[in-house]
Amino acid sequence: MAKRIDVSGLSAYYGSHKAIDDISMTIEPRTVTAFIGPSGCGKSTFLRTLNRMHEVTPGGRVEGKVLLDDEDLYGAGVDPVSVRREVGMVFQRPNPFPTMSIFDNVAAGLRLNGNYRKNELNDIVEKSLKGANLWNEVKDRLNKPGSGLSGGQQQRLCIARAIAVEPKVLLMDEPCSALDPISTLAIEDLIGELKERFTIVIVTHNMQQAARVSDRTAFFNLAAVGQPGKLIEIDDTERIFSNPSVQATEDYISGRFG
């Protein structure tokens, strides 16, 4: 089910501005990888190149290779739509579809893609909501609009929506930055469960969170404002937080700069 990601020599541009430069890394299946680094160093940009969402931005352009189990996402003839069905995404701000009910939000991916059987739909929605730890809170009001939920519930709804289409990889861009500690814990627990089935990549500004949930941690940095962001190092989370091999990583993690 889960797939390996193999990035080599990847650079991304906004128009003529180079946002990330020459990034290479391997992400193993069924692991959680955390991206950390200062604001503006290109974590979101890099994440979005992994499911070809970067090119949705006007002027967005990518160079380099991203292999998903040996298949290049940027190879000739690859359809970005089918890439995004394999590599799902959860955004920083919860964004449920405002015209749809809770049920329809979770079913949206299947319905909009048209590949489901009617009698399966109820089961899939229930399974996904349970998977996102939301089922008990919403099972009595599945027909109410998704925008009527609290922020944390909305974010879990978005996670349910993303896992309902059974992607191989799940990308999360600061999924907890707008949430209270309890919802954050709920989502962290959820990540621990989801990792049995998916390959997970998560961007976070919260060091404790990276240390708690991830197996591997990648540290990004940029030389100066306006310069492209670079991958400084990627290693086992334990090592990054106890004994990183690059001084800049240690400075960033311990809060020393300059």
Binding site: N51, M53, V56, V81, S82, V83, R84, R85, E86, G88, M89, F91, R93, N95, P96, F97, P98, T99, A108, G109, R111, L112, N113, C158, R161, A162, V165
Partner: peptide, 20 residues
């Protein structure tokens, strides 16, 4: 964000426009 949410689910652009 709504367009991106839909696209990220693997929904083609024309269906995103039509349904979202």
């Amino acid at each position: 964000e709504l367009r991106e949410a839909s696209l990220a689910l693997g929904v083609p652009k024309w269906r995103t426009i039509l349904k979202v």
